[in-house]
Design a protein around this nucleic acid. Structure first.
Lengths: 123, 123, 123, 123
DNA sequence: GTGGTCTAGACCACT
DNA sequence: GTGGTCTAGACCACG
């Protein structure tokens, strides 16, 4: 994973998003341990405080849970886990629609473009 | 037009975007007058400084021009005008792809969703 | 308001609690501005970051809202506001019950004690 | 007995408190043997170090005593034993008062609530 | 070693 | 001036 310090999204939000993507892809199992704050901070070359912030955010969203002084773990709440993927997709779709609707452009035209670009960059 | 103060996009960016959308739709003709800073500020209930900043940004991008003490006008430069629409579309498409690629989801599934939602919300 | 650095409750939690109490007492009106992070930090002799943290927590709980670069304000959501007082009471009661139930003591005995002490300290 | 790892009270404090409650209820007689550190750790699924710490704490408070290589026992000091119950009650009452005083609520209202809830959850 | 909190100080974007 | 983010570094309690 990489962090982009120049994005409008703050670093800790990018981190949260990355974990959500991992969960959505099923690459993080329920109950699985995630790196400690310090470890993640080292990996991403960010400050431990920033990592802590991301984790706290995730905890607030119920994505991870923390038992005292044990490494945080992915939640076992299937309901939460199940909705992550859909949420990401819905968010992406909604934001996409919001950005093309105000322009006078046919859905078909735009979708073809997406398809084309998507395949292209796949390489 | 509406301004959302809680979006991560700054207000002035939202304003610029709105003008671009109007241009892309052909609702703003080359040479057409646009509201004064103060007028716009009143309409959108934003700070005049913010309106000023939006106009300055547009001027920088060559979208509008201002003659001494006259209302600002949409540029007559066809080249600039012509590229606005495509830019908006490309931006939207790229950002959409960037947000769905990291999730393990087929293009088809997602495009169907877009189509569906797009039609649905049309009403 | 005073902050106690030696309590088990972290400072930012104490701050949040204090605001909740103020709201419960009706001393903070819906939509009312609250001190800026810096101001509060000065008043309580705490670090602005800690104040920020408390405010972010409150925002997460829907107690306050923040428009870009304007002082944060008490929420106007009557539902949220209305439940603050009750929540505080319920919390206090539940925690009290949880702490006396494991002891073999009659409710009456204990309640008399509460009454007595409450009046006494009123002075 | 149950241990809650997510409470702000550390585990060892919870353990100490539990023993005090047992003593207050007279369920632990003076001189009675209590489980070994290891046993307790197994029962509560806590770290032996934590059990050790709890016992050390209790020893410090004179609640238990340990003779060389023998199981720890409840103290026979009547003075200490007698004050446990009252201490627990006073603590509970004080903390309760501290949490309701800052809210503008009548003692009567709150005490009725306590009574009601207490009876209700009894079942 | 873990998570959690706090301070100090800096910088940014926006109004 | 406002809110927001980040770094650096320190300290604590717990296991």
């Amino acid at each position: 994973m990489k962090v982009d310090f120049n994005k409008r999204d703050p670093v800790y939000v990018q981190v949260v998003r990355h974990f959500k993507e991992q969960i959505a892809k099923g690459m993080l199992e329920p109950g699985q341990e995630i790196p400690s704050r310090r470890e993640l901070a080292n990996q991403l070359k960010i400050n431990p405080n920033t990592a802590q912030r991301a984790y706290k955010e995730m905890e607030g969203q119920g994505l991870i849970y923390t038992e005292r002084n044990l490494p945080s773990k992915i939640t076992k709440d299937e309901k939460v886990l199940g909705s992550v993927r859909e949420e990401l997709i819905v968010e992406a779709v909604d934001s996409f629609i919001a950005s093309i609707r105000p322009i006078d452009v046919s859905v078909e035209e735009v979708l073809d473009l997406v398809k084309e670009k998507y395949e292209q960059e796949k390489k």
